[in-house]
Each structure stands twice: as C-alpha cells, then as structure tokens.
C-alpha cells in the first residue's frame, strides 16, 4: 500500500520536473518549486510512517520549513524587488527540450537498475526517478538564461538529490541533512546578493551580459 503512495508521489515529482522544464514564467516556476517541496515532504512522511524511522519526521519538518516556506518566500520577495515578477522567458524550442528530457529519463532508469537491485528499501523503484529529477534540473539550468531560473534549477536539483537519498537509504544522517539545508539557505541568500549586483551592473538579469567574461 505504502509502496503505491510512494510511486505516486515519485511520478508527481517527475511530472513537476517536466513542468519546470517547460514553464516560462518565473513566478510559476517558484510555485512549481514549492509544490515539489511539498511532494518531498509528503514522500518523507509516508516513508517515515511505513518504516518507523523517526528521524525522517524531523527531516520532513526541516524540508517543510525550508523548501516550502522559507526559500519560496525569499524567492518571491526577490522577484518582487527585482521587478521580474511577470517576466516571461523565451525558451528555445520546448518540444525538443521535452524529447531530450525523455531520453534522459530513459537513461536514468537504465542507470538506476543495478543500484535498485542492490538497495533493500521499499522505495527502490524510485531511484531512477530521483536520478532523472537531478538530470532534468540540470537540463533546465542549461536551457534558461535568467539568473533566477538557474538558481531555481539548482535548488530543484538539490530536491532530486534529497529524494534520491531518502529512497535509497532512508535519508542521510541528521547532521548531514542539517548541514545541507543550511548550505542551501546560505547559498540562496548569497545568490540573492549577486542578483542585485548583476542587476545594478547590467540593468538586467540575463546571463548573456556575463558572457563578456571570456578571455579576449
């Protein structure tokens, strides 16, 4: 029974990754990121209740505060201050990106096969999805040109990693998780500072202005 819940949540996660890949609006991207966080929380709670690993509850609580409340809030505030709330990104050819994404999912499932055989957890079928989420987020970073969407891609990559960790080994040790959470938080804050600096310098958040950094 629990296995089916987990599979459902995993497929939602994958779907969200694809949704992010094709989403043009930055604000909707943040929403999607928040939903991704919620799915993760639900997934962690389900695993915790099935396996009786109590530390996963703390982990879920941490994810909830950080990835559903604090980070989206910071990001919302940021886009409001930067006045990019309603910005629309021009994406290159969404259908072909989708096709690449599908290829990546297939590759990930193939790659995950041997690991799933080794893992003894009830969630072992979802390792492929976790890996696909990581790679799709990376793909999303590649196809975006706005700095904020890149940061969101980076954060959702971290989500995928977290998902992979919970599904292979029932989560990392609490200390590691706390450390990672803090890193992500600090990382976002620092990147926020960078956004303002970039904005001030180039009057835009588009990364093409940074391309002059190439050595002449």
């Amino acid at each position: 029974m629990a296995g089916q819940y987990i599979n459902l949540l995993a497929s939602i996660l994958l779907l969200l990754a694809f949704a992010m890949l094709s989403q043009r609006r930055i604000k909707s991207l943040i929403n999607l990121f928040m939903i991704q966080g919620m799915t993760l929380v639900a997934n962690t709670v389900v695993i915790a209740s099935t396996t009786g690993q109590t530390h996963l509850y703390y982990s879920a609580l941490l994810t909830l505060t950080l990835k559903v409340v604090i980070l989206p809030w910071i990001l919302y505030r940021m886009i409001r201050q930067l006045n990019v709330e309603w910005d629309v990104e021009t994406l290159i050819n969404i259908p072909s990106t989708m096709l690449v994404g599908i290829a990546i999912v297939i590759i990930s499932f193939n790659l995950a096969l041997p690991i799933s055989h080794l893992a003894g957890t009830i969630t072992r079928g979802t390792i492929g999805i976790a890996m696909a989420c990581v790679l799709l987020s990376l793909l999303m970073m590649i196809t975006r040109s706005k700095a904020i969407s890149q940061v969101i891609g980076f954060l959702s990559m971290e989500n995928g990693l977290f998902f992979a960790a919970t599904s292979t080994t029932y989560g990392m040790p609490m200390v590691v998780e706390l450390g990672v959470a803090l890193d992500v938080l600090v990382g976002v804050l620092i990147l926020g500072v960078f956004f303002f600096q970039i904005r001030e310098k180039f009057e835009s958040l588009d990364l093409k202005h940074l391309e002059k950094t190439e050595e002449e």
Partner: peptide, 9 residues
Amino acid sequence: QQGRILVYL
C-alpha cells in the same frame, strides 16, 4: 571556450 555559462553547464 565560449564564455557562456549555459554552454559550460
């Protein structure tokens, strides 16, 4: 070496 972050990614 294109100098474009996206290409490096």
